[in-house]
Amino acid sequence: EADPRLIESLSQMLSMGFSDEGGWLTRLLQTKNYDIGAALDTIQY
């Protein structure tokens, strides 16, 4: 079963217009401990 923190973070990022095609966003959020800010910083640079 998916981590509730992942579901919450992923749904927030999907609502911002990101896609999780191929699961890349799920993996990114997992490596950033479900921190949306850290994930966005990684995507920006």
Results as ranks from 00 to 15, higher is better:
residue 33 N to S: 06
residue 39 A to H: 01
residue 21 E to M: 09
residue 10 L to T: 01
residue 10 L to S: 01
residue 36 I to W: 08
residue 3 D to I: 06
residue 40 L to M: 11
residue 17 G to T: 00
residue 18 F to W: 09
residue 14 L to S: 07
residue 13 M to V: 03
residue 22 G to K: 08
residue 13 M to N: 00
residue 41 D to C: 10
residue 15 S to D: 07
residue 27 R to D: 10
residue 5 R to G: 05
residue 42 T to H: 15
residue 27 R to Y: 08
residue 34 Y to R: 00
residue 35 D to P: 01
residue 28 L to F: 04
residue 27 R to K: 13
residue 32 K to Y: 11
residue 30 Q to T: 14
residue 43 I to T: 02
residue 31 T to H: 08
residue 19 S to M: 08
residue 5 R to K: 10
residue 9 S to F: 11
residue 12 Q to H: 11
residue 17 G to C: 06
residue 33 N to H: 05
residue 2 A to I: 14
residue 9 S to W: 08
residue 5 R to C: 10
residue 28 L to C: 07
residue 3 D to Q: 04
residue 31 T to V: 13
residue 45 Y to N: 15
residue 7 I to N: 10
residue 9 S to Q: 06
residue 10 L to C: 03
residue 30 Q to L: 12
residue 16 M to A: 05
residue 22 G to W: 05
residue 6 L to M: 09
residue 14 L to G: 05
residue 19 S to F: 08
residue 34 Y to Q: 02
residue 24 W to F: 05
residue 29 L to I: 05
residue 2 A to Y: 12
residue 7 I to P: 05
residue 43 I to M: 08
residue 11 S to K: 14
residue 6 L to P: 04
residue 5 R to D: 05
residue 6 L to Q: 04
residue 45 Y to A: 14
residue 9 S to L: 06
residue 32 K to C: 10
residue 10 L to I: 09
residue 10 L to N: 00
residue 3 D to M: 05
residue 38 A to H: 08
residue 26 T to I: 06
residue 12 Q to A: 14
residue 12 Q to L: 12
residue 21 E to K: 09
residue 3 D to R: 05
residue 37 G to K: 15
residue 31 T to R: 14
residue 37 G to S: 15
residue 24 W to G: 03
residue 40 L to I: 12
residue 35 D to Q: 06
residue 19 S to L: 09
residue 27 R to N: 12
residue 42 T to K: 09
residue 37 G to D: 14
residue 32 K to V: 15
residue 18 F to M: 04
residue 42 T to I: 12
residue 30 Q to E: 14
residue 41 D to T: 11
residue 25 L to D: 01
residue 45 Y to I: 15
residue 3 D to S: 07
residue 28 L to T: 02
residue 17 G to S: 01
residue 42 T to L: 11
residue 14 L to F: 13
residue 15 S to I: 12
residue 39 A to S: 08
residue 41 D to A: 15
residue 35 D to R: 03
residue 13 M to Q: 00
residue 39 A to T: 12
residue 29 L to M: 04
residue 20 D to C: 06
residue 24 W to E: 06
residue 15 S to Q: 12
residue 4 P to R: 11
residue 26 T to K: 05
residue 20 D to P: 02
residue 29 L to C: 03
residue 26 T to C: 04
residue 27 R to P: 03
residue 31 T to L: 15
residue 35 D to T: 03
residue 4 P to K: 13
residue 2 A to V: 14
residue 36 I to A: 06
residue 22 G to E: 08
residue 35 D to N: 12
residue 45 Y to C: 14
residue 5 R to V: 06
residue 9 S to K: 06
residue 18 F to I: 06
